[in-house]
């Protein structure tokens, strides 16, 4: 269980994390999703007691991390794949970390096997690939058999097999009743792994909900329609606050109105509709909609055109995401 209350981190005038409050519950995988620079890593470093909050507080299993007698037994974290001395072997790195808690060497060998590092454990970490570095970081996180596992971008640099392994691992740990908190900027990965999602953008929590409700809540109805006279149909729909995109001469995608309403208007306008397909909104769409404004502050080299009331002029490339 991780609880953050009005947690803030300011660097000068800039707030990297701005009074966020959230709770990460045991027994499920909670995804921490946000664009690069949104404050994910800073939040995780504050949870692990590496950065001091500028305001608010965060506790793990009821206490600030630093106040636990055996912190590695409470929380295991992969914060940064490069948190290892490059000239030391993976085995010795884990041994040194284990020694602080009196964790026996047998457990060190166990996590080495578990993470598939057996063949390279005695080699210097400096020669490791990004993926092997990630595996070593995960091995270190699991060393104390902790109740809470925090993984910052765990699939970074992993091959497909490794990605799948992390996914199974996260789900497996959660099914054992542990708290699993993992960050990513890849929504597709979250869709497959997480049960619950906390979305952060520019240091603020944008959404905190079960993954399905985020998909449902953000997704306005989107419908694919094949129609013989699209312009007539769209013209009649224009007053209903919809957006649309013409994909082919007779194929349009209409967002913001229920399929039944489209059928009613088609009937009234006497246009021929020969396909009417409600589309499932992907997490990716939901994410882009949630974070769009947050991202736009960061990189936009084109001046923003004022939003026109005429919905049909929404550029296709914006909507397509």
């Amino acid at each position: 269980m991780i609880e953050a209350q009005a947690l803030s981190k300011r660097y000068g005038a800039k707030a990297a994390v701005d009074a966020v409050s959230f709770t990460v519950h045991p027994g499920k995988v909670t995804g921490f999703l946000g664009p690069n620079g949104a404050g994910k890593s800073t939040t995780m470093r504050m949870i692990m007691g590496l950065d001091n909050p500028s305001g608010g507080r965060v506790t793990v299993n009821g206490r600030p991390y630093a106040q636990h007698r055996a912190p590695l037994r409470e929380v295991g974290a992969l914060l940064d794949a490069k948190a290892v001395h490059t000239k030391r072997s993976a085995y010795n790195h884990l041994r040194a970390m284990a020694a602080t808690h009196g964790i026996p060497d047998s457990r060190v060998r166990e996590v080495i096997e578990l993470t598939g590092l057996g063949s390279v454990a005695k080699k210097r970490v400096g020669g490791f690939s990004l993926g092997m570095g990630q595996r070593l970081g995960i091995a270190a996180a699991l060393l104390g058999d902790p109740h809470t596992v925090i993984l910052d971008e765990p699939v970074n640099g992993l091959d497909p097999e490794g990605v799948q392994w992390v996914r199974h691992l996260a789900k497996g740990l959660a099914s054992e009743g542990r708290t699993v908190f993992l960050s990513s900027h890849l929504m597709s990965e979250m869709a497959l792994t997480a049960d619950h999602l906390i979305v952060i953008g520019r240091g603020r929590i944008i959404a905190d909900a079960p993954i399905q409700s985020i998909i449902d809540g953000q997704g306005k109805a989107r419908v694919r329609v094949r129609v013989d006279r699209p312009q007539d149909l769209l013209g009649s729909l224009a007053g209903e606050g919809v957006t649309s995109q013409v994909l082919e001469p007779e194929l349009v995608e209409i967002t913001g109105v229920e399929p039944r309403r489209i059928a009613e208007i088609a009937l009234r306008e006497r246009v021929l509709v020969y396909e009417l397909t409600p589309l499932q909104v992907s997490l990716e769409d939901a994410y882009m909609q949630l974070t769009q404004t947050e991202v736009e502050y960061q990189s936009h080299d084109l001046p923003l055109t004022p939003a026109t009331p005429d919905v049909q002029q929404v550029p296709a490339h914006m909507e397509g995401r």
């Binding site: 007691g49 290892v84 602080t100």
Partner: peptide
Amino acid sequence: TGMIRSTMVAVP
């Protein structure tokens, strides 16, 4: 090398 983060996580 970043090792300090591992060190200080183990010994907060």
